[in-house]
């Protein structure tokens, strides 16, 4: 639901990093514990960057699994489906989230300042 404002934040980060160069692709890390719907994010990204300097830049979304580490027994649990935030081995609720909360712009791919290639990769299809 908030993918529109997230797209704006992403665009701001990307524009700063690109520093005027055309951006072909934006690589995002999105943890499973983030409530981000990739398809919605891609749709909103298109709305936000359309007609602007980032027009045509594709999103490449890396989903990062949610993993918790148990403070009691030390076991690592990958959370699937409903994120029960507890240890899958001993059931303890005292766990630390090891991964799954990521939400960052990992990298961007930029072209030369004078883009003659109009066929920037599309995100889907």
């Amino acid at each position: 639901m908030h993918e529109l404002s997230l797209s704006r934040q992403i665009a701001a980060i990307v524009e700063r990093a690109a520093d005027g160069r055309p951006v072909r692709e934006v690589e995002l890390d999105v943890g499973h514990l983030r409530q981000v719907v990739p398809e919605t994010l891609e749709y909103c990204w298109g709305l936000v960057v359309g007609g602007g300097p980032l027009d045509g830049a594709a999103l490449r979304i890396r989903r990062i699994e949610a993993v918790v580490a148990c403070r009691e027994c030390g076991a690592s649990t990958t959370l699937r489906g409903i994120p029960m935030i507890r240890c899958g081995t001993c059931g303890a609720a005292a766990v630390d989230v090891v991964s799954g909360e990521e939400f960052l712009v990992r990298s961007i791919e930029v072209g030369d300042a004078d883009p003659t290639d109009g066929e920037s990769p599309t995100t889907k299809e």
Binding site: A18, S107, I108, V110
Partner: peptide
């Protein structure tokens, strides 16, 4: 293209 690490 050139890939730039952003990590932001």
């Amino acid at each position: 293209g050139e890939r730039i690490d952003v990590l932001e």
